[in-house]
Design a protein around this nucleic acid. Structure first.
Lengths: 222, 222
DNA sequence: AGATCTTTTAAGCCAATTTTAAGTTTCGGC
DNA sequence: GCCGAAACTTAAAATTGGCTTAAAAGATCT
């Protein structure tokens, strides 16, 4: 985890750097707003800590510039000001949290961990090769281009991908995707396989779904 | 946006509910830890506010249980305790933020907005293309011209924009915007989508809201 | 209380999705 | 290479679900 600290007082900056490096963070320091902004724009940090009162460019302005560039990196303010107005101002500039000086190192650490935690979780998408399926949002992407599917098409593809590297028999497919539990001579699976293959092909994701004659279908990674 | 408040003092709970509903949040209340935990586990909230000292199950234990279930929902603590130890304890239990009683409603609101923001994206004002939404003032602008919306229209648009680039399912919309938790065959969403589309169209912001048939709606940047 | 604005309900219409069905192609064993 | 079974493709019918509109019900303001 890589952090950037923008803080002009060498005492505080050094104390933070040492303490955080003990916790196995990689720490960069900038001693004014301009340098800090430069570093923030040219490197990719997991979190940035900014003092409110710093030379050249103010902390709040640095924060605004970072957000303006589209970056979503968590930003924490270090501030001696603690009136409500200042807090609101900071939060509105795009900060994720702030901590008042003097602060306990322990609390800072805890708050950093909270920010990092919420940043790096929550993605539970299914993958098969370059194909990316998000059951939560009902979306399918091939690399970065989205493939639009109807509900049944999506359900079928999801089932196949969830069982990738395994043969999905026709009867299992009809049970899991169509919820039909009795035998029937419908050819609805064939039709939907055709639909899916066509849409995947158009997106550049050709022959992903392979036929196992007499049994069913399979999706392989490779 | 749907919130859960777990707070045993009816005065504070009512005050929060009223204030937050005026801000177009959908608010549920639980008066003890057990009920709160039940609600938190069975529904999907955008944020949960928990009082530290509540009957049956303590706030901190509720928080732990929620995290244990794998949920990443933002959690804020409401607490009279303000010693460092307690704060650390709360953050370690999985809370994202805490606010000390007595607090200014404005600050609570600002902190709620920070949590909602960092959950969904990270931009400070809500934007989608040239559309600009200000949750604080309940105003919507397309470039520099204002679009006047009713409260429900605003809440719906806000929800869609907060989740832009993601499909918003009908059931999530009805839960988060209307606070209806049971199935119902109402067509109120369709009607409001029509309202919104008409107003957006008149403002020159045509086909922003796209339909994903059988699933819901999505707002895309482009 | 009356007027106005907002929200919800209900119904008909239309378009997209799903299913059926029929014709065509492919595959594997002989 | 031929034959039958299975899979593929296509088109059209059936169904579902979304859009629109109008009007009723509910809020809010004067």
């Amino acid at each position: 985890m890589r952090l950037l600290i923008i803080e002009d007082e060498p005492g505080i900056a050094g104390f933070l750097k040492d303490g955080l490096e003990e916790e196995y963070f990689a720490v960069d320091i900038a001693y004014d707003g301009k340098n800090g902004l430069d570093l923030a724009m040219t490197n990719e940090y997991d979190l940035i800590i900014i003092d409110w009162m710093i030379p050249v460019i103010s902390g709040i302005e640095v924060c605004r510039q970072i957000r303006k560039s589209g970056s979503l990196v968590p930003i924490m303010f270090l501030t001696a000001k603690d009136t409500l107005e200042d807090v609101l101002f900071g939060l509105e500039a795009g900060a994720n949290d702030y901590i008042k000086k003097p602060f306990a190192f322990e609390e800072l650490l805890a708050r950093i961990r909270v920010q990092l935690r919420s940043k790096h979780q929550g993605d539970d998408s299914l993958r098969a090769g370059h194909l990316n399926i998000n059951p939560g949002t009902h979306q399918v992407f091939y690399d970065s281009s989205e493939i639009t599917l109807t509900p049944k098409e999506f359900a079928l593809l999801e089932y196949l991908v969830r069982n990738k590297e395994k043969v999905c028999t026709r009867s299992r497919i009809i049970e899991h995707v169509w919820d039909i539990h009795f035998d029937s001579d419908t050819s609805v699976i064939d039709v939907y396989i055709t639909f899916l293959r066509r849409k995947l092909e158009n997106a550049g994701c050709g022959n992903l779904i392979q036929t196992i004659r007499g049994v069913g279908y399979i999706i392989r990674e490779s």
